[in-house]
């Protein structure tokens, strides 16, 4: 668990939690979505807009907009590429890898020795396997990673994919929508 992050204060507030519960599955596609959310949780439209703006400004919400599903857009292949990077270099390399447009996630995670040695995880999407492999080759060349042990874990079946629900128990949001790759 990342112990360096704590929940945003708004999330300790019942209204804030109700807001998250109401919007985590997506906004209703109607002319005044924030007003609909406001009615659902019993606050004003202006309050909903203000609270969302606060969460965006403070980085709790990374972005607000259309969440695409890669596979349905023809990006049929994805691989999780895991790298065994010296601990002192992982942050710098992580920031470099995370900036490539075809890298869709880039996280440091713990090693679990002896079973698991890899500490940097990148998700790479492409139209097919060849496309993904070319992206990986480009990363290796651009960042000088020939000597860095890595493995490519192509996904072969998707058993389940939906948006994260955080166990925040307020009347359900608008739909149990599918989510993006995590």
């Amino acid at each position: 668990m990342d112990m360096n992050v704590t929940p945003h204060p708004l999330l300790n507030d019942p209204r804030g939690r109700a807001l998250v519960a109401a919007i985590q599955g997506g906004l209703p596609l109607i002319a005044r979505p924030y007003a609909a959310v406001a009615r659902q949780i019993g606050v004003s439209e202006r309050d909903v807009i203000r609270m969302i703006r606060e969460l965006v400004d403070q980085g709790v919400i990374k972005r607000l907009g259309v969440v695409v599903r890669h596979h349905e857009l023809g990006y049929d292949a994805n691989a999780m590429v895991v790298w065994d990077v010296p601990d002192g270099q992982v942050a710098e390399l992580g920031r470099r890898l995370g900036a490539f447009p075809f890298v869709t996630l880039c996280y440091r995670r713990p090693r679990r020795l002896p079973q698991w040695r890899y500490n940097l995880f990148t998700m790479i999407h492409g139209r097919d396997r060849g496309d993904v492999q070319r992206h990986i080759d480009a990363l290796v060349a651009a960042c000088g990673l020939d000597q860095v042990m890595h493995q490519v874990l192509f996904s072969t079946r998707r058993f389940k994919q939906r948006g994260a629900h955080y166990g925040i128990d307020v009347s359900a949001g608008p739909g149990d929508a599918d989510g993006r790759e995590a």
Binding site: G25, G26, V68, G179
Partner: peptide, 10 residues
Amino acid sequence: VISRVGPVFR
């Protein structure tokens, strides 16, 4: 094609 229009939480 899209799963939702809404927030992506950190």
